[in-house]
Amino acid sequence: MLKLDGVTKVYRIGAFGGQTMTAVDDAGFEIKPGEVVSLIGESGSGKSTIGKMVLRLLPPTSGTISIDGRDVRGIGRRDYYRKVQGVFQDPFSSYNPVFKADRVFAMIREVYFRGVPDKEWTAKIEAALDAVRLSPAAVLNKFPHQLSGGQLQRLLIARALLLDIEYLVADEIISMLDASTRIDVLNLLADLKQRGLGVLFITHDLALGNYISERTVVLHKGRIVEYGPTDAVFEQPEHAYTKKLLASVPQLHTKWEDAS
């Protein structure tokens, strides 16, 4: 179980760090293996900051993040990243534009699978690509700009699957994809649950959070305003902010005028 407890992030801003800005205030929730937790918030809500703290790209100012009861600060980075991985929003920014896209696999190999012979490694990559439903011929040995956004995001999920990951932080991973391909990437994420993976699904899109997750956390200005099973949050929202958000979502078959 991945657990956040009283996690707070305060940024020092201005000259000599004279002022402070609280990006995340006392956030606490947990992700169990085999479930998707969506973290819903608008821009500036601190949702990506939480993602980055879980990925240890940013240190929390206070509070603890633990995995199976162990404080993550006590775990070496390489060991931690073997278990916890991330995929980000912009598929094109996630790849170094001067190199081929499959270099993300090579980087993993260099660090984690140095001794593995080529043949075994190729088989491992093929298995990972198969899990994200990509054909090796279509994606290997290509530059990022030769692939579609959906393929690039799948490739990143495959990259994470090369490791023995237990938790995946998915930060707005489909918000830049086209409607006709995004749902398949989302389904893929949901399928990973069956492998026992815990997913932190960060999004601003309520419909997506509702579609995929078991539990939902609603974040507003750095604070958790609502946290519970997805059904409950969406059907009986308690906080005024959640209600307002739900009323603003454009629904395909209902017009705003008719709803109010």
Partner: peptide, 10 residues
Amino acid sequence: SSLPEVGVRY
């Protein structure tokens, strides 16, 4: 038909 709406669950 590929668009998820609030209320549609995986």
